[in-house]
C-alpha cells in the first residue's frame, strides 16, 4: 500500500467510488477519475485502486455511504488543503 497526498487543486475531488462493508467490494474502490478534478490533477490516484484510509481514518468496516461521507468531509474541511489517501492496488479486504 502507499500513501498518496492529493492537493485540493480544483473545486471537486473528481473520483467515483464503489464498495463498502457488506457489499461484494468490502473496501471502496476507485471506478472513475474525472478529468480536471483534484484527483486527476494530482496524478496520484488510478482507477482500480482500493482506498484503505482517508487522513489516517480506516475505511475497514465502514459502509459505502459512511466511507463516501468521510471522503467528502475530508475534501470539504478547510483545516487542510490536501487529503491523504492510503491506497492499495490489491483488490482484497486486508
Amino acid at each position: 500500500s502507499a500513501l498518496m497526498r492529493v492537493a485540493k487543486s480544483a473545486s471537486t475531488l473528481g473520483i467515483a467510488i464503489e464498495g463498502g462493508a457488506n457489499t461484494r467490494q468490502p473496501l471502496p474502490r476507485i471506478v472513475t477519475i474525472q478529468r480536471g478534478g483534484s484527483a486527476h490533477n494530482s496524478g496520484q490516484l488510478k482507477v482500480g485502486q482500493v482506498i484503505l484510509e482517508v487522513n489516517g481514518v480506516s475505511l475497514r468496516g465502514k459502509e459505502h455511504r459512511e466511507a463516501a461521507r468521510l471522503i467528502a468531509e475530508a475534501f470539504k474541511t478547510k483545516e487542510k488543503d490536501y487529503i491523504d489517501f492510503l491506497i492499495t492496488e490489491l483488490n482484497v479486504a486486508l
Binding site: 467515483a16 463498502g20 471506478v31 474525472q34 459505502h64 455511504r65
Partner: peptide, 16 residues
C-alpha cells in the same frame, strides 16, 4: 467464504 462473498450485494457508486 466464497459462497458468502457471492451472496453480498453490489455496491452503489458515489461521485465525489
Amino acid at each position: 467464504v466464497r459462497e458468502k462473498r457471492l451472496t453480498l450485494p453490489p455496491s452503489e457508486i458515489t461521485m465525489l
